[in-house]
């Protein structure tokens, strides 16, 4: 599908693909009636969709700010607003530490996997060499392996590396987990850069490294952002490895596993739990909404261009 070039979602030109232009043989009155009806249907659909999409997040926030969320009989909006839940979670709950740990893990994972994936994707997209196809197949296949299958051997592996209970052990694993997808997606971006641009750089006397920095890198930046979002999510949300590799080292817990532990201690104090959930979710949400456009173009390029 080579026609599919990365396209930002909300180009003004593409908007209103069906609704606006006055066209064709349909009588004016019928058309107007149909237009209003379809607008009404659309409005209803949008409302339903927003309801379904936002309710969990809304409910999470509402409970997080409610003074007595766990007591039952809750109304849609908090009966008594409070910040006490957040305060508790960030101090006694230990989420200040979990957040810090997650931030470190996510940052390192994003940087390391971006660098490794970019280099590797240039290799597979720009060079012909023996085993290239085999390599690509392997990357694809590895991407499909279920995490659960890797828990046991990776646990043993990380133990052999003496990295159990450490953030480093977790980072290394996350980098490995986000690499295949990253390479696969960036490959599409690198391939989309016209080879003539590179050649022009060489003609100007640039070395390969210079060309890489000043031609290739800026052009694949959107792809890099997209892959980074993915490795960030992997690192921030991942649960099963954090649970097994960190074991008893509470001081190294990431947010996902920290929340599980917190839930175990406060299983009926929903105000706390929802406050903790909110704190974990907000950074990801902000991140997501900001990169929304680039993300979707990156996705299309990566997944479709393949």
């Amino acid at each position: 599908m080579s026609t599919m070039t990365p396209a930002p979602v909300t180009t003004p030109a593409a908007s209103g693909a069906t609704g606006d232009a006055s066209r064709g043989a349909i009588p004016r009155t019928r058309r107007t009636a149909r237009k209003t009806r379809s607008a009404a249907v659309k409005a209803v659909l949008v409302v339903l969709l927003l309801g379904f999409t936002l309710f969990p997040a809304f409910w999470m926030l509402s409970s997080a700010f409610d003074k007595s969320a766990g007591a039952g009989g809750q109304t849609l909006l908090p009966r008594e607003w409070t910040l006490a839940n957040f305060e508790y979670v960030l101090t006694e709950g230990g989420f200040d530490v979990f957040l810090r740990n997650s931030a470190i893990v996510a940052l390192v994972t994003v940087l390391a996997s971006a660098v490794l994936a970019l280099l590797a994707s240039v290799a597979v997209a720009r060079f012909r060499f023996r085993f290239r196809t085999g390599m690509l197949l392997m990357i694809l296949v590895v991407q499909m392996v279920p995490l659960e299958a890797l828990v046991i051997p990776l646990f043993v592996q990380v133990r052999d590396l003496q990295l159990l209970n450490t953030l480093l052990g977790l980072m290394v694993v996350y980098v490995a987990l986000s690499l295949p997808f990253g390479i696969w997606m960036l490959r599409g971006f690198v391939a989309a850069v016209p080879i003539e641009l590179e050649e022009a750089a060489y003609i100007d006397g640039a070395s390969w490294g210079r060309m890489f920095r000043s031609v290739l890198l800026p052009l694949v930046m959107p792809g890099l952002v997209a892959t980074s979002v993915f490795s960030f999510i992997t690192a921030w949300n991942e649960f099963i490895f954090a649970m097994t590799l960190l074991g008893g080292a509470t001081e190294n817990y990431t947010v996902a596993i920290g929340l599980k532990q917190f839930f175990g201690e406060h299983s009926n104090e929903w105000g706390y739990i929802m406050a903790a959930s909110t704190i974990i979710t907000i950074p990801v949400m902000i991140f997501f909404v900001i990169v929304q456009r680039r993300l979707s173009s990156g996705l299309v390029a990566g997944a479709v261009k393949g």
Partner: peptide
């Protein structure tokens, strides 16, 4: 001192025994 929850404790002990990271 590290505090461990009862609900998780068994799994956690077993994992740490397997991993050689017991207290």
């Amino acid at each position: 001192v590290e505090f461990v929850q009862w609900a998780d404790a068994h799994d956690r002990f077993v994992t740490s025994i397997a991993g050689g990271t017991t207290p």
